[in-house]
Design a protein around this nucleic acid. Sequence first.
DNA 1: CTGTTAGCGCATTCAA
DNA 2: TTGAATGCGCTAACAG
Lengths: 337, 337
Amino acid sequence: MGKPAPEAKPGATIYSVAEHAGVSIATVSRVLQGAAVVAEATRQKVLTAVDELGYTPLGAARSLAVRHHEAHGLVLPELSGPYYAELLMGFEARAAELDQSVVLVLTGSRTDLVAAVRQLATRVDAIAVFGSAAIPADVVRMLRAKKPVVVIAGEPHDGIEAVAAENLGSARELAGHVLDHGRRRVLFVGDPDSGPDVRNRHAGFVAAHRDRGLDAAEPVRVALSEADGAAFARRLLAGEHEADALMCANDELALSIMTALQDAGRDVPGDIAVVGWDDVMTSRYVRPGLTTVRQPVHELGALAASRLHELVSGEPPREDAQTLPTQLVVRSSCGCA
Amino acid sequence: MGKPAPEAKPGATIYSVAEHAGVSIATVSRVLQGAAVVAEATRQKVLTAVDELGYTPLGAARSLAVRHHEAHGLVLPELSGPYYAELLMGFEARAAELDQSVVLVLTGSRTDLVAAVRQLATRVDAIAVFGSAAIPADVVRMLRAKKPVVVIAGEPHDGIEAVAAENLGSARELAGHVLDHGRRRVLFVGDPDSGPDVRNRHAGFVAAHRDRGLDAAEPVRVALSEADGAAFARRLLAGEHEADALMCANDELALSIMTALQDAGRDVPGDIAVVGWDDVMTSRYVRPGLTTVRQPVHELGALAASRLHELVSGEPPREDAQTLPTQLVVRSSCGCA
DNA sequence: CTGTTAGCGCATTCAA
DNA sequence: TTGAATGCGCTAACAG
């Protein structure tokens, strides 16, 4: 077992350390912040005292004195699926480089979103918010009045800065690829109103049709989860929709639909092509491999953290959308060999 | 576009609000905390002033005064794959219920882990740490000397509390299931030294053999990622190992190995059975479906958050491991129809 | 190179 | 029901 680790003792403050080391609190602060020059001898005395007392500075006191939290807030809808997790990893990594703590709020688990973000604004210097319908625009505006804000995967609005991955162009390319396989009854599966991302993917879908003098069908408005995909697949199999190709708003949807169709005896892509968006891990494992679009999600998170830091440092918000390039990943679910 | 959202104004403090409302700061504090009784008229004056000034309290000042951060720290290795994400969601959800902020540290992105957690201890009341080899025991002990700590997916050590999902019994059951299919050259793939979780799964593997009077083979020590699984699969195909079944330490490993074997023409489970651990999404989609073990990951995260809160509230650490039950999920990769 | 001192913004006694 | 005063622990001038 080993001996019990010493328990947390509350006591030690900068005063007790100073006293223990026989110096002033200013000196303690100096050696701990490495700010000014301190004689090596005193430095050691302080370090020893810190160690002996198990001193842990009180972040709140420092924040109050320096008038910075040295923390970034991040508001995400949830974390299921690889997309948000990857985004968060990118954000955290960059924040770490900038010596900023990360305070996370997931809106999915909140009954009172407004109170949660208001509370968040209380303890961070700036906040990144994911731009989905799960986080209403007026909440973002409310935040903006308190702290610097950047919207992730959204569009610049009312002077609120945004960062995003490219959607329209890649969606146009992807839809064009499917159409060029000769498919003529292509359905867009996903709700363009669920957020700027899906809206732009749908816009690309429409544009690809227009490019070829075709009319795009109305989008099938379903949410972006496995369950919604399965429900749609049932409706499709029941004959409610007619299609020889499906362009799904994300991979989760595409995968659950594709699998359901296959389980029902349909041939993908023979009978019907299916493509997605995100390039999640599963998309490489299924047969046929899912044709999709890869986003630089990690970089997107990192960019958000970088921009927050620059905004805190006094840089003005950017008016233009900062867009990261995406990449079409062609496998075989689209009809390619 | 809409009109620009008002920018963050730094000014407002409890003093400016008090002045604006014509009351004392004590009254402002009272209405904002809802603590004491305040006359409805004054209450409204204060609320109006708060609104007009766009007042956001400074969390650091509050923390300093109340001597609590009202925040929990969470230290995780990374977030790829559904396991940690789900854990984090459970943790965050429970923390939210308890009105605690969540400060996240991912060790994967840190060059100096010790500095990162030391810094973390500065701004939270208590810390949950994932108990893998990625986070050394002495780091945990160091933390323990500063703040209440609970180790997730670990074992109680030196008076440090732990919460975990059940591993040994389910592993014994899973390995037994495979052996009862008549497989006799079963390999455990994963490094028992990578953490208590894998160690216990391996122990169950060994126990299942012992139950049947068999000898368990030495574990194949590989890390828990897709890439490591693919590398192992190549070695297996090259004849470096001989096996008619693989019990993998997690699903990521199992999936990448299974797919690699299939791509090389091997029949799963005909030629070789493959089972995993975690029940990730992909495990339902692959063919054959992956036999695995489902953990209550969300609940595990929630339990950690609950315990942190109780420790902060003065409850003593528990000596015994708090273990959540797991569930064997039988699909067909094990040899079942 | 080091010590003294004055806030940082809030919660909270204690009086009134 | 309200206000005045004090201190939470730290940083950062300013003096020496």
